[in-house]
Structure formats: structure tokens, C-alpha cells
Simulated scan of single mutants.
Amino acid sequence: MPKPPVIPLSVLDLSPVSANQSSGDALRSTLALAVASEAAGYSRYWLAEHHLNDGVAGSAPHVLAGLVASATKTIRVGTAATLLGNYRPLQIAESIGTLAAVFPDRLDLGFGRSGPPKSPGEPAPGQPSPSVDQEPEERVVEGLVVPAPRPIFGAVLPRKFRLQSELLGRFPGDTDNFENDVQDIIGFFTGDYRTRHGEEVTATPALGQSPQFWVHGSTAGPSARLAGKLGLPFGANYHVAPATVLDSIAEYRAHFKPSESLQEPHVIVSADVLVAPDEYSARRIGRGYAQWVHGIRSGQGAIPYPAPEDAADFALDPEAADLVKDRPDTRFVGDPHQVSDGLRTLQRATGAQELLITTIAHDPADRENSYQLLAEAWGL
């Protein structure tokens, strides 16, 4: 009896900066990991976009995508996601068009809607906020932990988050342009873009190139609905917002309309993963993860990832630990077989056609080894 096909695995890389490491070290580690991931059989290498984070060097995904594509030969390279409000549509089309022209049939462009809250204390778009009237509870769906949503900031929006928005030219409500921006960017590639006055625009070198377009989302909101409406593949964020991953996928599928490029819904689901030869080693090298996540989720910015032996120096108080509780609870940590079993549960519960793996550790060698062990156990 033939074995079922292996679900493709891909890599999501934030280029984390570790304690006692420079941003240059982190970026060179990204290039080394991309080469190793290609050799191990991963399908895609996607780059995230974060700004003003001491512990993350992945701030310029379009530039870094070019470096990754140059360092590799066959793996697909892309963004997960390009945050549209940080750019003008023409800039994105020209940047990705340049890469697609040089590396044909290898580029993926992921659209993300994240933007500034409309008022202090309101969660950033794409992030769940629990009701003050009802405390949601953790669920287990087909073996998958679906935690209660966590609040994102607090009563006061952190100064660094405000500063980031100011420096990037963001303004409250700018995510309302998301659908038009997505369609404009695609139009630059297809030649269908028109100005408000009906003028044709040629965006060289984007015109005629064909990157694969994705929409990424964390909730059952505009991003999921737009991906379905346009017949595009959808990236669901279990690693960022595990509480709402099933709802976001259901919303996407409910609104899906076949397109020229995609006849049926297609979902990739992200997961935080850390693999080592045995569970004890995996949990040891994973120390510091909650503290690192707290920096991002609190809006203060990720700290340089601490060494395992120093993680206790960054212990979180109970309130801070509660803010990020869902992330350690849904991280797949252990030996190759334990993690593979967990990822199969994730795939089964979500019905995903692909899985997107992100791994954070202090030592780049531990990250690379984690991806290698998973690839072998998964059968890539």
C-alpha cells in the first residue's frame, strides 16, 4: 500500500539576534540556515518583518530575500509577511519584481495587514483581545491545544510601538487600504493596474513576472476574507495567535472563490518548533523563549535571545508570564518523533496543505540542527 504524500515543510526566519551576537552574525546565520534548509528538503524559505527590536535583525525582508535567493539554488524564497502599510504598492512591486526577474519561479510575496492600533490600549490589527465580560477557556480540538486569547499590550501603548509607527509613516486606519493595496500590487505584475484617471502604468521590472502571492492573517477578519475572495493561498498563524487559528482558516475557506491560479483553498500553518536529540536537551536549549516573546508581545521589542544558562536572570513576573502563556503552551518542543507527532496533530486539526516552521534558539547551530532533525523524522 503506497504511503500518503509527505506534507511539505517550510521555514519562517526572523533572523533572531542572540546575546553576545551582532546583527551581522544573525543575518549570516540566516544565509547559512537557508542553504542547510534547502539541502534538507524544505520547500520555502520565508522572511518575517520586524522593526526596532534588539533581538531581531529581520527588518528588511525584500533585501534579505535577495541575499537568500543568491545563496541558494532551488528553494522558494519570500516574505511572511510584507506589511503593506510600511510601503507604497509600487515600491513592493518593484522590489519583488526585481528579485522575480533574476530568480524566476522562485519568489513568494506574502501580504500582511498589521498596523498601528487606532487608540491607546486597543490591540494591534490581527491580534485577539479577550472580552472583559467573559474569560475564554483553553480548548483541545482533535488533540490540538487552542489556548485562550491573551491581551497584547495594556492600558498604555508602549512608546517604542508608537515610535515605530511614526518612523514608518503609519497612521490610525491605514490598514483600511489593505485590499486596494493588494490588488494594486498584483496589477503591477499582471499589467492590469490603472490610476484613478484610467492611465496605464508600466512597473518595470515587475510587469510580466509571476511571484506566488499569499495573504497572511491571525484572525477571522479582513485578511482571511480577502485571501478567499481573491482565490489566493492563505497563511494562518498558529505560532503568533494560536487562539484564533481555526477561526481564521474557517473564515478563509468560507469565502474562497476559485481563481485562475488556485481552484481550491490552500493553507499553510505556522508553528514554533524546537527539536533536539532528546526532550531534556530540547527544553534546556529552549530556555529564554518566554522572555524573548514577552519583549515582542509587550511592544517593548525582543531582547537578544539569552543563553540557556542565563535565562533565569530574565525570569518573568506572574503578570508578564500570563501575557505570553499561550506561546510556550503551543510550542512544539522535544525529540524528533515527539515534535513530528505534534505537527501531524496540527496538520490534521487545521487541514493544512503545508506547515511553516519557525525555530528560535540562542546558538545558531542548535537552530540548524533542529531543522535537520525534523526534516529527517518527517521524511523530507
Rank of each mutant, 00 (worst) to 15 (best):
S129G: 04
P89K: 07
R348V: 00
I360L: 10
A243Q: 04
M1N: 09
A32P: 00
P306H: 03
K118I: 02
A227T: 10
P258S: 14
P222F: 05
V63E: 05
T204A: 09
A148R: 15
V245A: 08
S223W: 07
S298Y: 03
I268V: 11
V6G: 02
L90A: 13
W214K: 04
F332L: 12
D366C: 01
A352S: 06
V77G: 01
P4A: 12
E251D: 03
A57W: 07
Q164D: 06
A39V: 07
D133W: 10
T79I: 05
P258F: 09
I186K: 00
R297D: 11
A36H: 05
F171Y: 15
A93C: 09
Q164F: 03
Q127V: 15
V145A: 12
K3A: 15
D313E: 04
L67G: 07
A236S: 14
G301I: 08
V141I: 13
T244N: 09
V182L: 05
A48Y: 03
R139Y: 07
S29T: 07
A36W: 01
R113S: 12
D184R: 03
P128Y: 11
S165M: 14
L167Y: 13
H216D: 03
F171H: 15
D341Y: 08
V240W: 04
R44C: 10
E49M: 10
N369D: 04
P128T: 13
G169V: 06
L380N: 13
A361H: 03
L356S: 05
L157H: 12
K73W: 01
D133M: 06
F153I: 08
L355R: 03
T82V: 14
S129P: 00
Q353V: 01
N53I: 05
A81T: 14
P308E: 06
L12P: 02
T204R: 06
R150D: 04
V145I: 14
A40Q: 06
D341H: 13
G187R: 00
L157K: 07
W378G: 01
H362W: 14
S259W: 14
T244V: 08
G191A: 12
P8K: 04
H255G: 06
E94K: 05
Q164I: 09
G228Q: 05
L14E: 10
A203N: 02
A48I: 03
P128F: 11
E137M: 02
S223V: 00
N53Y: 08
V293Q: 12
V63G: 04
A250I: 01
S10K: 11
A60C: 06
V68P: 01
V63D: 02
V339Q: 09
I357S: 05
A39Y: 01
G78S: 10
A224G: 06
V6I: 15
G126W: 12
K73Q: 15
F103G: 00
